[in-house]
Structures are given as C-alpha cells and as structure tokens.
C-alpha cells in the first residue's frame, strides 16, 4: 500500500468516526438546541475532536519515538500490530459492551469524555498505529534509511502528529457537517432516523486493518 492510499485510509477513518453519533455530532446537536446557536454546535464537535486528537497523540507519539530510537524497521511491528487489531476487533464483535467508565464523566467535560471513549471504547489510537507504522516503514525503505537519529526521531514524531491531525480534521469536518445539518435543516426528528448502529462496522474495520497490517508486514 502506497503513501497516498495510507493517507486516504486515515481520512476515511476520520469520516467513519465522524458519522458515528456518539463521537460528537449528537452531543453538538443537543448543545445547539439547548443554547440556540450554530457556534455552540461547532464548539461541541470541536471538543470531541480535541479529545480524540489527544488520545491519538498520547499513544502515537511515544510509539513513534520508540520506533525511531529503536532503529529497527518499523515494518517489523506490523505483524504484531495486525494480530492485536484482529483480536481487538473480534473481541468487540463477540462482546459489544457498553462503556461504563465514560458515563461517570460529567457532560460539562466533553474533551475528557471523548478522550476516555477513544482510549477505552473505540480504540482509534490503536487503530491509527497501523497506518502510522506503515508510513514510517515507507520512510525507512525510501530516503530516510540512512538518516541520523535526530532527523529520524523528528520525522517519526512529526508523522505521528500529522496522522492524528488528519484523522481529527476529517472527524471534525464530518461530525460538524452532520450536526449543522440536523440542527439547521433536518431537526431532531431526523436524529433517530439517521442513527444506525456503527459499532459492529467499526469492529469489522479493526479486523480488516489487522489483515492489512499482516499483508504489509
């Protein structure tokens, strides 16, 4: 899989998460109807996107730095990552559990809620490791193979940041679009009509990503 395809995949995952109601647009719509302004809708999706961004950074940045300092080929991690993603996906399919910890986070703290959900329930930070490791592998296979440790670390960390940023931007854009559409045009009645259970699909995505990781590795 080439670099362009990987970036496309990262953006597509953001779209999928953005479409998923609990990942931002639902909260933003509720906030909009309570406060009566489109700005509050965007503040809502923004808070959720920020929580997701932080979760991806918290896992992705240290992972990238470890790979950079380890000097090994990042591609070597792909088989292990693949197995982990497949196991996690199958587990989510078999036991579609409700998140329990996140319900204790007050609604006044949407960034924390989104952060906790990303880490504990969706697992997007883990999923993002697959395109990240693949991009890093392409880098080392390409011109980056002989780079010094500083350059390598900088490049790896930068890649982790950009992967998280692209995913977040696409999540934010998608969630905001849907939230504004429901808030301004479709109304609350549309809410239960457009809401489908995306959790099984997300679990399947984990399995597919895992298979792809095995193929890349």
């Amino acid at each position: 899989m080439g670099g362009a395809a990987l970036w496309g995949m990262i953006a597509a995952m953001g779209v999928y998460q953005g479409v998923n109601p609990p990942m931002g647009w639902l909260y933003a719509v509720g906030r909009g109807f309570e406060r009566g302004s489109p700005a509050s809708v965007l503040a809502g999706t923004g808070a959720f996107a920020a929580g997701h961004f932080l979760a991806m950074i918290v896992l992705g940045l240290p992972a990238a730095l470890v790979l950079a300092l380890g000097r090994a080929d990042p591609g070597l991690t792909l088989p292990w990552l693949g197995i982990a993603l497949i196991v996690f996906g199958l587990y989510k399919l078999a036991w579609p559990l409700h998140p329990r910890l996140a319900v204790r986070i007050p609604p006044s703290r949407p960034v924390s809620w989104s952060f906790a959900m990303a880490c504990l329930h969706c697992g997007s930070p883990v999923m993002m490791l697959m395109p990240l490791a693949s991009l890093l592998m392409l880098f080392t296979m390409g011109g980056g193979a002989g780079a010094g440790i500083g350059v390598r670390a900088g490049w790896f960390a930068g890649a982790a940041m950009i992967v998280a940023a692209v995913m977040t931007a696409s999540l934010f854009a998608t969630a905001s679009l849907i939230a504004l559409l429901v808030y301004r045009r479709l109304g609350l009645r549309a809410l239960t009509r457009v809401w489908v259970n995306l959790d099984p699909g997300w679990a399947v995505m984990f399995v597919l990503m895992g298979v792809m990781a095995l193929g890349m590795g």
Binding site: P21, L26, P107, L191, T192, N197
Partner: peptide
C-alpha cells in the same frame, strides 16, 4: 437511552 454521552440507543 438517546442521551449523547451515556446512551445505549440499541
């Protein structure tokens, strides 16, 4: 069950 941060809509 439809609540944004605590729902179990399904």
């Amino acid at each position: 069950m439809l609540c944004p941060m605590t729902g179990h809509p399904f």
